[in-house]
Amino acid sequence: MSNPVNRPSGRPNEIARWHNTMRDALGRANNLQAPNRNLSGNPLEALHAQARHPQTALIRASDVFTPEAPRPGGAADRTWRDPDNQSRVYAPSNGVPLYNQGDPAWKSLRLGGTGTVSATSSNSIQKKGCAISAAAMAVSALSGRTITPREMDRYLDRSGGYEGNNVIFGRTGGVTGGNPRITATRQSNLSVNEIDRQLAQGRPVVIGVTYDSVNRTQTDHWITLTGKNADGSYSANDPNRGVVITLRREGGNGLTAPRGVTPNGRSYHFRNQAVTFSGGTPVRANLGNGQDSFTARPANAQAGATSRPQTT
């Protein structure tokens, strides 16, 4: 329950501006039946003197919005600059850089071996490099370093990170050289609830999706989930053409994106194949993005001049 605040005589709009709030909020806090009417009368004169001190004339002291301090590593305004080409900058989505596996800088690199191949070859990053591109996005975000698919491929070549042209996900975190230490773990039955928990902690999740085929147990493509939206949908960086797509819950424990939102015109279905990451710095965008914390203050507490509570 709100405690009535001190108020001077005058127009409600003027009094609200004095307290850095809105007229309707002022009316609710003071139990005013008609907050759009001028305030007048003896009681208002008695309150006028105290109203000159806004720091003690609080609208509501029970709810206080406490912004979370910006964290390094995954800030939304980080510049994701290519270490091999300083003129190249990759746009972020929810603090995670967005890579295109068909980028000319790496599309023809051979998976599971050195050198280049035709970009249309089944051994090229453009054709089959979604897994390393998705992992590179997640590890970049958690490490605070721009680790492109090119750099990830080089590292996996050196460290035995391929079986044929298939990536061994458990090796991908080692691309940071232990600074910071990041561990990637392949998950064969990851629930959507666990995905929610990982995203809430600021950790991107790489998920495998199947296309609209008869056999939906086969993983056809890998994308990087970057956050859960206010409407319950999920944002993902899709390395196929380097676009942001939206997925929604499907059934009790699945996610899906329809043909109309995917870059290849085929529907995506998540069937619990995924990669999670530990270590590094959790991704947090800048203040005011919905990831700040909302804390309660006792109703009889007062904020000082440098800490004004937000009104509701």
Rank of each mutant, 00 (worst) to 15 (best):
S2W: 12
S9M: 07
G10L: 09
I15V: 14
W18M: 10
W18D: 08
M22P: 00
G27V: 04
G27S: 08
A29L: 07
N31T: 10
P35C: 10
L39C: 01
L39T: 05
S40M: 10
S40D: 13
G41A: 13
G41T: 07
L44F: 15
L44W: 15
A46Y: 14
H48P: 00
A49N: 11
P54N: 11
Q55Y: 12
D63W: 10
V64A: 08
V64F: 12
T66K: 00
A69G: 01
R71A: 15
P72M: 10
P72H: 01
A75S: 05
A75Y: 02
A76P: 00
A76K: 06
R78E: 10
T79K: 11
W80R: 00
R81M: 03
D82P: 01
Q86P: 00
V89W: 00
Y90W: 02
L111E: 12
G113Q: 11
S118R: 14
T120K: 06
Q126N: 02
G129A: 06
C130Y: 04
A135P: 00
V139P: 01
A141P: 03
L142D: 06
L142Y: 05
T148D: 11
L156A: 05
L156S: 08
D157E: 01
D157G: 05
G161Y: 06
T172A: 13
L190E: 04
L190P: 09
V192L: 13
R197M: 02
L199Q: 07
A200G: 04
G202D: 11
P204N: 01
V205F: 11
I207R: 14
R216P: 01
Q218T: 14
T219N: 07
T219E: 07
W222M: 14
I223Q: 12
T224D: 14
L225G: 02
S235F: 03
N237R: 08
V243A: 09
V244P: 00
T246D: 04
R248E: 10
R248L: 00
R249C: 04
N253C: 03
T256A: 12
T256F: 11
P263E: 13
S267W: 04
S267E: 15
Y268E: 02
F270G: 02
G280I: 10
T281L: 09
P282D: 13
R284T: 04
L287N: 03
L287E: 14
N289L: 09
D292M: 01
R297V: 03
P309M: 07
